[in-house]
């Protein structure tokens, strides 16, 4: 079943997530439409990573509903959610340091039952650098290469929704530009829907079609990327002193 661009792909309604007694998400409502790049910006500790992990079911939402492509996935285990077509490049990249680039990529395809040769080719096309380094161990890659690998690994499960947690974290400006270029390409050329968490608000807002601002476990603002970029509140909180 093909979905037209613009249909809601992912909807969160009233999602609360807890770590023990600590409420990290306090009632999140948001949607991501097919074909969009949506970004979520917010200060450290706002709960952005928690939101992405909740989408993947680890930890699971205590209240609320998460619907992906018309199916309620709130209570599904992570492996099932990944099979449904959601993949994540987690915060801090978290590639497997002692495994080679190729093995890392293969692990991305571990939930996909079929052969992964096609995906591998696609990832190598997006990141020729990874092909050159395919026998190198993940831990010895540069930061930018590691980020490419993390994105490539997420793409290996053939997702329709790609979740990226701070892809620019700790990277040099030039490398960030490369990574963001690739994200744009994946979205435009491959029709991949991207939901991206960023602290680098300036770049993220320029890239994204739409954006959400998160404060303390709640969404406080939403709008188009360009709209938020012009918003004085956003400028004051996230852009001043930045790039």
């Amino acid at each position: 079943m093909d979905r037209a661009a613009g249909d809601p792909m992912l909807t969160m309604t009233g999602v609360h997530t807890f770590y023990g007694a600590i409420e990290a998400l306090k009632g999140i409502d948001l949607t991501v439409a097919t074909g969009e790049i949506v970004t979520l910006i917010g200060a450290n500790g706002a709960g952005k990573s928690t939101l992405l992990m909740t989408l993947c079911g680890a930890p699971q939402a205590r209240y609320g509903r998460i619907v992906f492509e018309g199916e309620d996935i709130t209570r599904l285990p992570t492996c099932q959610i990944v099979r449904r077509g959601i993949a994540q490049s987690p915060e801090g990249r978290r590639i497997f340091p002692r495994m080679t680039v190729l093995e890392n990529l293969q692990l991305g395809a571990i939930t996909a039952p079929a052969s992964y040769a096609e995906e591998l080719e696609r990832v190598f096309l997006l990141f020729p650098r990874l092909k050159e380094r395919s026998a190198q161990r993940g831990g010895t890659l540069s930061g930018g290469e590691q980020q490419m690998l993390a994105i490539g690994r997420a793409l290996m499960s053939r997702p329709r929704l790609l979740l990226l947690d701070e892809p620019s974290l700790g990277l040099a400006p030039l490398v960030i530009r490369q990574i963001f270029q690739v994200i744009r390409d994946i979205n435009r050329d491959h029709g991949m829907t991207v939901f991206m968490v960023e602290q680098n608000a300036h770049r993220a807002l320029r890239l994204a079609h739409r954006a959400y601002v998160m404060v303390n476990g709640l969404i406080t603002l939403t709008g188009t990327g360009a709209g938020l970029l012009a918003n004085p509140e956003v400028r004051a909180a996230y852009l001043e002193g930045g790039h």
Partner: peptide
């Protein structure tokens, strides 16, 4: 095989394993 590779992935980084949907 996938099982063995998943074991090694688990040893390396279990949060990454979760994110990849490894049970």
């Amino acid at each position: 095989l996938p099982l063995g590779r998943a074991w090694e992935a688990l040893r390396e980084d279990d949060i990454a394993c979760t994110a990849l949907g490894i049970n």
